[in-house]
């Protein structure tokens, strides 16, 4: 202790007050000025960046003046417009998406089965952990030569690599999602009399939905990138190529503007699914339920 002597606090009288509503503070909430509000909008800010990028691209393209290696922004847009108008890009996109959806769906079904086995038995758990540990680090594209050997040139090979790219990511997330469902929620479900499949559908799947959704997103991202890459490598099957083939084909004919248009289409689909479709699903589910912060 220090050497200072401590004096007791002064004795003070008690007091009681009545509380009243506050007066004269003005509006509780005031709207922001218009310009400030516009810049608060992320879409507007990002749109401005895109416009800036397009400008830089156009200027650099004109300065370089080499349409074979680097077409200008406007040339690319023209090629894109022509590709869409002639129906080639939509057709190629449809082929790609169809292959993707088939592979994605098969991957999900197998993942769901594998996870169900994993949560119901210890052997299943060990099986799933071993499989995911082995196959998850293996890039799907590395299986392409084998797929070609097994399934030949065509859609089945593509579907095979997509299933591989979706399956492990989704199964891993689903399984860890199920494991992290709280004991209280499990017990609550069981006191309601839920058992077996009804318990899985009524409690486990919705409770694990944030993890499942994360798995679906990762699975989608893997599948999309894998598919475009696989199409680039051996693209065409029975005269029906996808977007990857469109890019490859136009490179062969040295139509670089169309190559750029193909790349932009790939980006557009990826963006649409990742930033729009999954966002909407998130907003309607995990964010509304307060299971994930917005």
């Amino acid at each position: 202790m220090n050497a200072m002597t401590r004096s007791p606090p002064p004795a003070r009288p008690e007091a009681e007050f009545t509380v009243t509503a506050p007066v004269g503070l003005g509006d509780v909430a005031k709207p922001l000025p218009f310009i400030e509000k516009i810049f608060e909008n992320a879409a507007v800010r990002r749109g401005l960046i895109l416009i800036g990028l397009a400008l830089v691209w156009e200027i650099y393209g004109r300065w370089l003046d080499s349409p074979l290696t680097f077409p200008t922004f406007l040339d690319t847009m023209t090629a894109l417009k022509e590709g869409i108008a002639s129906g080639v890009i939509p057709k190629r996109m449809a082929v790609t998406l169809e292959t993707l959806i088939i592979g994605y769906a098969i991957g999900l079904v197998i993942a769901a089965l594998l996870t169900t086995v994993a949560v119901t038995s210890r052997v299943g758990t060990d099986l799933l952990s071993t499989f995911t540990a082995m196959f998850n680090p293996l890039p799907a594209i590395a299986l392409l030569p084998l797929a070609l050997l097994w399934f030949g040139l065509g859609r089945p090979s593509l579907v095979f690599v997509i299933v591989h790219s979706v399956l492990w990511a989704v199964a891993l997330n689903m399984h860890s999602g199920f494991l992290s469902v709280s004991e209280t929620q499990r017990m609550a479900g069981r006191t309601f009399g839920l058992k077996g499949l009804r318990f899985v559908l009524g409690i486990l799947i919705p409770a694990a939905f944030p993890a499942i959704l994360a798995g679906l997103k990762i699975g989608w991202a893997f599948a999309w990138r894998t598919l475009i890459a696989a199409e680039l490598v051996f693209g065409v099957s029975s005269g029906q190529g996808g977007l990857g083939w469109y890019i490859f084909e136009n490179r062969n004919t040295l139509d670089t503007a169309a190559v750029f248009a193909g790349l932009l289409s790939v980006m557009a689909v990826g963006l649409l699914v990742e930033a729009v479709i999954f966002r909407i699903i998130e907003a309607r589910t995990v964010r509304r339920w307060g299971m994930q912060r917005g």
């Binding site: 709280s182 209280t184 929620q185 609550a188 009399g193």
Partner: peptide
């Protein structure tokens, strides 16, 4: 369901 239980934890409600 003839023996309903109320738990201590707040997460006993289904958030969805």
């Amino acid at each position: 369901p003839d023996r309903m239980m109320v738990f201590q934890e707040f997460d006993q409600l289904l958030p969805w």
